[in-house]
């Protein structure tokens, strides 16, 4: 087995109108990793994703799946699309059927499976995304968050090894965004490789094993979250912000409120734990502004 499940080598793409969408993209995703691709609007994230599933063919460079170069014929693309699934940003452009059951069964039926197995997969995908109760509801009566879950079940039923999510938390409120990220963790825990695109740096920072930062069709920085954000210049240049945890950590360091060897925290709990002083008990609801009280 290859070290990386999905690799691109100097991938280039130019849209028919002459826009250079991708410039020499080199990326490598290890099996089972959680990868976040960060970039502002128009950085080329979606274009890159369409290459990883074989919808677009690179104008230059190579894409390898499991060590083997992607073959652009019917059988090769079928193989790639069976292993790499994409959940699109807007469920209304992905869901083609007015029936949730029919919608989810489309992908596995295209894999040439028997009806009985398709049915099993549909039920399993629905239970993993917790939408069993929507089976008899028509698509147009679902809420946005429910449609989004159906869109994921669409792909899960095909049982791909890699699942790509284009802007998974766009248009979701904080609670649904949090639940969504938990669902992604759950999917990753089952051994799948997950790639997401986002411009929410806080989500990417807290969630990902590996972060790629894209700007103007190039990858300008990559690495583990705690390393990537140590070089704010490339982040700012890519029209992104620093995660609040990183900024807070820097500021606390600058004021000597943290020990110099305190590690960069990945969650707010980790940040609070690294603070000195003593705990005066629970902060009650409505007084979140007094959080600074625990500082020395």
């Amino acid at each position: 087995m290859a070290a990386f499940i999905l690799e691109t080598e100097a991938v280039e793409y130019v849209y028919p109108d002459g826009t250079q969408a991708l410039r020499k993209i080199d990326m490598a995703v290890a099996k089972g990793q959680k990868v976040a691709i960060l970039g502002s609007n128009g950085a080329g994230k979606s274009t890159l994703f369409l290459h990883l599933n074989g919808i677009l063919r690179p104008a230059g460079g190579k894409i390898r799946y499991d060590g083997r170069e992607v073959v652009y014929n019917a059988a090769g693309l079928r193989e790639l699309r069976t292993r790499v699934g994409i959940v699109f940003q807007d469920p209304d452009s992905q869901l083609f059927s007015a029936s949730v059951l029919q919608e989810i069964s489309f992908g596995p039926l295209n894999l040439g499976l028997e009806k009985r197995e398709v049915k099993e997969r549909v039920l399993k995908a629905m239970s993993e995304t917790e939408i069993e109760d929507l089976a008899d509801k028509p698509t147009h009566m679902l809420s946005f968050g429910q449609k989004k879950r159906v869109a994921i079940a669409d792909i899960l039923a095909m049982m791909p090894e890699v699942i790509i999510f284009d802007e998974p938390t766009a248009w979701l409120d904080p609670r649904h965004a949090r639940e969504f990220m938990q669902l992604l963790d759950h999917l990753a825990a089952a051994g799948r490789t997950i790639i997401i695109s986002t411009h929410d740096v806080d989500i990417a920072y807290a969630w990902a094993d590996n972060i790629l930062i894209m700007n103007h069709g190039q990858i300008v920085a990559s690495g583990v979250p705690t390393e990537v954000f140590r070089h704010p210049d490339s982040i700012i240049a890519a029209d992104l912000a620093l995660p609040w945890l990183v900024e807070m950590h820097g500021e606390l360091m600058r004021r000597d409120w943290l020990r110099p060897d305190a590690p960069l925290p990945r969650s707010k709990e980790a940040l609070f734990a690294s603070l000195g002083g003593h705990d005066k008990g629970k902060i009650t609801a409505g007084t979140t502004g007094t959080v600074l009280r625990v500082l020395p």
Binding site: R81, G85, F88, F106, V122, D154
Partner: peptide, 16 residues
Amino acid sequence: TALTARNYTGEIRTLE
């Protein structure tokens, strides 16, 4: 695009 990404080849087949 979304249908192609799910191996659509010109015929929509679904469970009923």
